[in-house]
Simulated scan of single mutants.
Amino acid sequence: MIDGIIATVVFVQDLARCTTFYRDTLKLPYAGTDANSSTFQLQERYLILLSASGATDLLGSDPNELKIAGTPRVVLAAGVEDVDAAYAELKAKGVTFLRPPTDQRWGLRTAHFADPEGNIWEINQSIASKTEG
């Protein structure tokens, strides 16, 4: 039935601020903006930032009515070639990390940060690729 994910939509309150962060700080491939959304194309998938009014149009109701206690509920995980280098580059741009690069028992080296609205991101690489490089 479901055979893949083509887009991830992140609901944001301040579209302009988040667009700047994703485009200028994270350097994601920017595809454009309209009144309610900003789109980034990551290989064959899209990351879409959607304003509250855009979310209401999409869902047919106010997204705040759909909130469930216990946020955050999603982590956006992205593979990088070198976690330590990406960590240093993002930290130099003022990104605040929740956790510095750490080797995980499941075989990944990870680091975690939040975007301007608290959405959690993980950058990761295989520990095996780290030792090979």
Rank of each mutant, 00 (worst) to 15 (best):
A114Q: 03
K93G: 07
S53V: 03
S126N: 14
V12R: 01
W121F: 15
Q13C: 01
P100L: 02
L59D: 00
K130V: 12
A78H: 07
L108N: 13
R73F: 11
I2S: 08
L42R: 05
Y46L: 12
E65H: 06
A88W: 05
S129L: 15
F113K: 00
C18D: 07
D34G: 07
I48T: 04
E81I: 14
I123H: 04
N124I: 03
Y46N: 06
E65P: 03
V74N: 15
V95F: 07
T39Y: 02
A69E: 09
G70P: 01
R105K: 13
L59S: 00
F21I: 01
R73S: 15
Q43E: 09
G133T: 15
S129M: 15
K67H: 11
W106V: 08
G118W: 10
V83N: 06
F113A: 02
K130C: 14
Y46I: 00
V95Y: 12
K93A: 14
E65F: 02
A7Y: 07
L28T: 04
F40D: 04
P63A: 02
E132Q: 15
E44F: 11
L15Y: 06
P29A: 14
T131P: 00
Q41E: 12
A77L: 14
V9A: 11
D115Q: 06
L49R: 05
W106E: 03
K130I: 10
G79R: 13
P100E: 13
R99C: 14
A52G: 00
R23P: 03
E122C: 08
